[in-house]
Measured scan of single mutants.
Amino acid sequence: MEVRTIKVFTTVDNINLHTQVVDMSMTYGQQFGPTYLDGADVTKIKPHNSHEGKTFYVLPNDDTLRVEAFEYYHTTDPSFLGRYMSALNHTKKWKYPQVNGLTSIKWADNNCYLATALLTLQQIELKFNPPALQDAYYRARAGEAANFCALILAYCNKTVGELGDVRETMSYLFQHANLDSCKRVLNVVCKTCGQQQTTLKGVEAVMYMGTLSYEQFKKGVQIPCTCGKQATKYLVQQESPFVMMSAPPAQYELKHGTFTCASEYTGNYQCGHYKHITSKETLYCIDGALLTKSSEYKGPITDVFYKENSYTTTIK
């Protein structure tokens, strides 16, 4: 009895394709271990004539594949690729409408935090270190965002349907971005203890939790000093293409032309909904596939993004 075979390709990165001759009487799992086709788990399936010449994702289970996976995804987590594939199996079914010149995501599976993050990423200057993220990001900007969303979920250790947080998501993504040249110098002034300067680099240099107003941050924000008295913390120097200011959701007025974009969060910790506000020729609110415009805006804002380049204080 002759062994019926077909020729397929296996890959971990969709760049390096490895030619395989597979036995049609055995499952993919018996031949390769966990195997995925377009995100779908085909591990328990036997090869079919229609699979001839198709590319299958496999887990990096030998040295060659491990090197290829690390170079593309910059992670050695053995569960990463499987999590990416199972997320992709959902995100490829989502709709990605162009809204006001940006790629958004039609609401499904509690994905409003991903839509808000995706919209924000198209408006701030950011370059990702893992080629996987950078490639998928370019495709997302062009309207094909399924891979990018699935990668975000995998890097953030999230599953489809789980509630997510924009600030946490951005923080994970910033860790995989090139923020080497970003720098922030802060000064804390206390009447009792004097003053202390701190220099922050990388992710810490672009994120701040405690106030939404970048102007206020430049002037000074009140913080408790270690001595128990009130101290003032203010920005001395900022070198970065953008800054992200966050605070627990509270009524906040966004003035046209003073910011790049913002995240609105309605609801409580267990259950809520994100919308995205962007400042173009007027203010726009993007909620999944829905767009509304207004000249002014007041609502429960939790993150505001500002364009920056270089700032030095005039406070002496």
Rank of each mutant, 00 (worst) to 15 (best):
M207Q: 06
G143M: 00
E71G: 06
Y96K: 05
K127R: 12
L200Y: 11
Y137R: 03
F174I: 05
K218M: 01
L291G: 12
T292V: 08
Q197D: 09
I105T: 02
T55E: 06
F148T: 05
V58W: 07
G143E: 02
Y84M: 03
D287T: 06
K275N: 04
N16E: 03
I286T: 03
F217G: 05
E162C: 01
C261D: 03
G194M: 03
Y274A: 04
L119M: 07
Q270L: 14
K218R: 06
S240L: 01
Y113H: 04
Y306T: 00
P130A: 10
Q216A: 11
L290A: 15
Y155P: 01
Q230V: 13
I15E: 07
A146E: 08
S295Y: 04
Y269I: 15
V21E: 14
Q20F: 09
Q222N: 10
C156M: 12
V236E: 07
D63K: 09
Y252I: 11
T260N: 00
L151R: 03
N16M: 11
V185P: 04
H176E: 00
D77L: 06
H273S: 00
K127A: 11
E264Y: 04
C285R: 06
F9T: 10
G33S: 05
Q270W: 15
L283A: 01
E253Y: 05
A140W: 06
A145F: 00
V166R: 03
L212R: 04
P248L: 10
A262T: 00
M245Y: 09
C190I: 03
L133M: 04
I301W: 11
A115P: 01
S181T: 12
Y84G: 02
E2C: 04
F70R: 12
F80S: 02
G267T: 15
T312Q: 14
G29L: 07
Q31T: 13
Y57Q: 08
C193N: 06
K229N: 15
E264V: 12
N89F: 12
I45C: 12
L291Q: 14
G202E: 08
A145S: 05
A117V: 13
L121F: 07
E296F: 13
K293N: 13
G267H: 15
T103I: 09
Q196C: 09
N157A: 04
I301D: 04
P34C: 07
G29Q: 09
S25H: 12
N147G: 11
E239V: 12
T10Q: 09
S240V: 02
S104G: 14
M207H: 08
Q30M: 10
